[in-house]
């Protein structure tokens, strides 16, 4: 068997795929955060909870309504996204004129409510959600063994990222969104319904989180606390990459996943902390973030 720096090739490649898959989640979540931040200027602390709600919606939909994985992948982001729009319309909008730190605090409170409620109903131990038949099993690629579902997550997440990029950079709605990010007051003066645009944007960001949640459901135990610890890592990823560009969020997310995977192989003790250490390094060397425009 081939060894790379004293580690069997198969193990290394296995961890790299794991890292890439984690990175895909970082990318999806930080993308959603960036989209929301761009227009609303708030950091959505409920993002982790909404990701968790996505996983739970898939689980419960299957358990009680018999909704299969493929349907859930489409339905759940829509449902959770609509729920997010209600949150924006009835809660976030009330504080939109205030310091943006209040948005962070409000969404933090909401995250506590969602998480605490589900902990009381379902407990903290995770439930299992199995991947559809077609995505089970694995492929032998010659140099490594690739579980099909992980491969699928990578493809689906990247497709979603591309879809988001396309929506924002190549459609009329996306052009509004970009213009609104630059100057929403001017947009309103031009007759664009900015409040509606804000609601849709928040809903879209939340939908992205829920989509990531459905993708994650067969991979990780579905538990009420699955989102919060992940979100803090995503925050670090956002600090590293900056929230300025979509491509930046995707590249940073994936590469942080790879770095984490490599650390797991070569220095497992630091696997939990390596992304935070990278963040410290970036703060020291390039305070605005790798793709950030402003400090």
């Amino acid at each position: 068997m081939m060894m790379i720096f004293g580690v069997p090739m198969a193990v290394l490649m296995g961890q790299l795929t794991l890292g890439l898959v984690n990175g895909a989640f970082y990318a999806l979540l930080s993308l959603g955060l960036a989209v929301i931040f761009g227009l609303l200027k708030i950091v959505n602390f409920a993002h982790g909870a909404q990701y968790m709600l996505g996983a739970f919606a898939a689980l419960l939909g299957f358990r009680y309504l018999g909704i299969n994985y493929w349907l859930a992948l489409i339905l759940v982001p829509l449902v959770v996204g609509c729920f997010g729009m209600l949150m924006e319309r009835f809660l976030l909008r009330r504080i939109a004129h205030l310091d943006h730190l209040y948005g962070l605090l409000l969404t933090f409170g909401l995250a506590l409510i969602f998480e605490g409620t589900l902990v009381n109903i379902f407990g903290v131990s995770g439930a299992r959600y199995s991947a559809p038949e077609a995505l089970q099993g694995g492929m032998n690629l010659g140099f490594m063994f690739l579980p099909v579902y992980r491969g699928w997550v990578l493809v689906a997440a990247l497709a979603m990222c591309f879809f988001t990029w396309f929506m924002i950079e190549r459609t009329r709605l996306g052009a509004y969104l970009r213009a609104g990010t630059e100057n929403s007051q001017l947009m309103q003066a031009f007759g664009v319904n900015v409040p509606l645009l804000i609601t849709l944007t928040y809903g879209f960001g939340v939908g992205l989180a829920a989509f990531a949640g459905v993708l994650a459901a067969p991979l990780y135990p579905v538990s009420p606390t699955m989102g919060s610890s992940l979100l803090i890592v995503v925050f670090a990823v956002v600090v590293i990459g900056g929230m300025g560009s979509i491509l930046g969020a995707i590249i940073t997310g994936l590469s942080m996943g790879i770095i984490e995977g490599l650390t797991k192989v070569y220095y497992p003790e630091a696997a939990n902390t390596v992304i935070f250490l990278v963040m410290i390094l970036v703060l020291l060397l390039r305070p605005a973030g790798l793709f950030g425009k402003e400090a």
Partner: peptide
């Protein structure tokens, strides 16, 4: 080194 919302995220990440 970072301000506003980023300051909150950096402190949160450092505490984690």
């Amino acid at each position: 080194r970072r301000q506003g919302i980023y300051f909150a995220m950096v402190t949160l990440a450092l505490a984690q």
